[in-house]
């Protein structure tokens, strides 16, 4: 069964059509890049999958069920903005995640925190923007979820940390789970992707395995993206 399925999904904000009749299926065990220029609808699609927006039309199914408390227990979502209460310290945030998510692995989180030299007692408000993003990603990736939806996970961190994060994503995700990474930093994520979805103006333009692009087009995903989305 597909872990994520969108059928005829549309979202309109006033006169702006953010998503238009999106049909998409993500199978378990795949690392999928959701790629598109700014304003193409990537964030809107991920928010809809998390029930943070209400679709104007169409349907979303997570492991066969409509978004609700049951599906939220299997989805680990990283938004593209700071969303943690800034008065909390890392230890309190781990308690919070452990309380609500049965699949939260504290040991894994502590290991990643140690690798990135982040103090458990430090509060979010004392951290730099990059460190906050690292903490968010650590919390999200410390869950043994069925579907990871990561919106711009490497946007605000330095290249060395970027490599560590991508390595962390690949090392830590459950092989039976799917990971959807929304980004426009294609060259950086290309190495970890099994599949890509190109999105433009709210419409899916392409869903293809990475190997197929390399073989059929004779170019990397980054090169192909630049060709398709040439201004």
């Amino acid at each position: 069964m597909a872990i994520l399925e969108c059928k005829g999904l549309s979202k309109r904000f006033g006169s702006v059509q953010a998503l238009d009749n999106v049909n998409l299926t993500i199978e378990p065990g795949r690392v999928v890049g959701l790629l598109g220029p700014n304003g193409s609808g990537k964030t809107t699609l991920l928010k809809l999958c998390n029930g943070l927006l209400t679709p104007s039309a169409g349907e979303i199914l997570i492991a066969g069920a409509k978004p609700g408390p049951e599906t939220k227990a299997v989805v680990s979502y990283l938004p593209d903005k700071p969303y943690l209460a800034d008065w909390m310290n890392v230890g309190q945030l781990m308690d919070f995640f452990a309380d609500f998510y049965g699949d939260f692995d504290r040991e894994r989180a502590l290991d990643m925190l140690a690798h990135l030299n982040i103090n458990e007692q430090q509060s979010i408000k004392q951290m730099s923007k990059g460190t906050r993003e690292k903490v968010q990603l650590i919390l999200v990736m410390s869950r043994k979820a069925g579907l990871y939806l990561l919106d711009e996970p490497i946007g605000g961190v330095d290249p060395a940390t970027r490599d560590y994060i991508l390595d962390t994503i690949i090392r830590n995700y459950n092989p039976a789970a799917a990971v959807v990474i929304s980004t426009h930093l294609i060259a950086d994520v290309e190495q970890v992707l099994d599949e890509v979805v190109f999105i433009r103006n709210g419409q899916i333009m392409l869903q293809s395995p990475v190997d197929a692009i390399r073989e059929d087009k004779g170019m990397s995903v980054d090169q192909y993206f630049r060709e398709v989305f040439k201004c």
Partner: peptide, 13 residues
């Protein structure tokens, strides 16, 4: 607000 991104993705009604 922004904290809603966490609260509304918790497995609670």
């Amino acid at each position: 607000g922004d904290e809603g991104y966490l609260m509304h993705t918790l497995p609670v009604s």
